[in-house]
Design a protein around this nucleic acid. Sequence first.
DNA 1: TAAGTATGTTAAG
DNA 2: TTAACCTACTTAC
Length: 269
Amino acid sequence: MPEGHTIHRLAADHLGLFGGQQLAVTSPQGRFAAGAAVVDGQVLERADAHGKHLFLGFADRRWVHVHLGLYGKVAFGRLPAPSSRGAVRMLLTGRTHYAELRGPTACELVTDADKAVIAARLGPDPLRADADPERAWQMISRSRAPVAALLTDQAVVAGVGNVYRAEVLFRHGIDPARAGRSLTRAEWEVIWADLVTLMRQGVDDNRIDTVRPEHTPEAMGRPARQDAHGGEVYVYRRAGQPCLVCGTAVRTEPLRARNLFWCPGCQSR
DNA sequence: TAAGTATGTTAAG
DNA sequence: TTAACCTACTTAC
């Protein structure tokens, strides 16, 4: 589930379960053994999320930088930890709970300076209070690239992934193939505001829901659906199925090695 | 049991 | 542009 909302939720959960505690930090799988040894026994002081990057801040300004990539997951549980299955890259053990990290693209020890370098190459994050959507607009309004590609470019907007980009474009009737520079400022402002709303909701619910109340199956008089990935969405992974609003078959096409989903009936603007 | 797919990024060519 | 990486789940046989 790793789009930005997942990472911000993880930051809050780590702080809530482990903040201010000395943690046992190990790498049962071994690939983070050296880094784990450095922070083992240290107090977790902070947790920060920037886009899809998670930073766990220990004493002496040492950060554990985690990027889940496509497969990474964190599983929390109450102690005692069960004998875990599979490869656990990092195991955190606190007073009452544990956290198991599996399959991340990145799990490494970094300094303040390293963290700043990562943050500097990211665009504004709709989930951060310090985000400046104007920075994204400057790039979008000058780009010939499709708006769908710009939205998942982490240098333009940080934290948006394949689900949020498909859904936010659907919600505003925008053709994903349109060039960034064809967007009006008003269209961008509405997209940004909606990303803030949707992603905050995603953090609270720990899943992605984008379907407006008036379009739920119940409201539309259709049988209830079950989306395999949890949340209720309009177009993501619904290729070939009828659009929840207009009935047109949802389309999919690869865009830069990711599957893009959209409704040709609703998204003509 | 095997094959296919995935909410992502990086490095090589 | 392509391959590589990492894990878990679903579907096909």
